[in-house]
């Protein structure tokens, strides 16, 4: 990481572990529950959030000295919504298939609390380059959790990964299903994501006791 100073590099690496937006900052939980039933959806969401958060953090950071503090939340909201709509329209015109896959995420990105959370907590007080790194770092941290959760939910719930059957066919009983194994229908409904995220938080905090809050 000679490209980045140690302080800047930390902006990328911290959110991946000890300052993860989902497991530590508890931001972006809603979308983590909603769209992780499949691995593909998790991946697409992670990439979309990375784009919007990276670009949004830069825009907000550039505007940070001229935004009136009384309406800063509204200004942040407008920036996110504008970015998302621009992306959506351009995709609809030039990559129609992709835009159909993304359709449901567009609304979810606007309401994703990670985005507003990072604007408010970081971009309003830091320069554009550092804000950009913070945006990328946080969306990577978010994406990693999404993909882990999506992996377990799709594997245990549907027996597939990225839509490809990896455990055999549950209807004609081949592969693992021949031994009497069944898909766990519970894994594809949102509460299962809460449990998987809970387990990740548990594992993370038992490995690093410094993260455990004192009550």
């Amino acid at each position: 990481m000679a490209l980045l100073s140690k302080k800047d590099a930390n902006l990328i690496t911290d959110p991946l572990a000890d300052n993860n937006p989902i497991t530590i900052q508890v931001l972006g939980i809603c979308s983590a529950l909603a769209i992780t039933a499949e691995l593909k959806a998790s991946l697409v969401m992670a990439i979309s959030v990375m784009f919007v958060l990276g670009a949004g953090n830069v825009v907000i950071s550039l505007m940070r000295n001229i935004i009136p503090s009384k309406i800063r939340i509204i200004v942040q909201l407008i920036v996110v919504a504008t970015l998302v709509i621009i992306v959506d329209q351009v995709l609809k015109a030039y990559a129609y298939e992709l835009s159909k896959t993304l359709a449901v995420f567009v609304g979810l990105i606007i309401t994703n609390c990670i985005i507003m959370g990072r604007f408010e907590a970081f971009a309003l007080a830091n320069g554009p380059w550092r804000s950009f790194l913070d945006g990328i770092g946080n969306s990577l941290g978010y994406g990693v959790i999404l993909i882990i959760v999506g992996f377990f939910r799709e594997l245990l719930g549907s027996g597939t990964l990225f839509g490809y059957p990896v455990l055999g066919d549950p209807i004609t009983k081949t592969g693992l299903y021949a031994t009497g194994y069944e898909n766990n229908g519970f894994m594809i409904i949102p509460p299962a994501a809460l449990i998987v995220v809970g387990i990740i938080i548990w594992v993370q905090r038992s490995r690093n006791p410094a993260l455990v809050e004192e009550n």
Binding site: P68, I71, V75, T82, I86, V90, A93, Y94
Partner: peptide, 28 residues
């Protein structure tokens, strides 16, 4: 300042989106 800022922002964002929407409409 707050009111002027809000007004300018609405106009700027509005024109960007309106321009984009009409430019891409035939393709869509």
């Amino acid at each position: 300042y707050t009111v002027v800022f809000a007004a300018v922002m609405v106009v700027v964002v509005g024109s960007i989106l309106a321009f984009l929407a009409s430019a891409l409409r035939p393709n869509i």
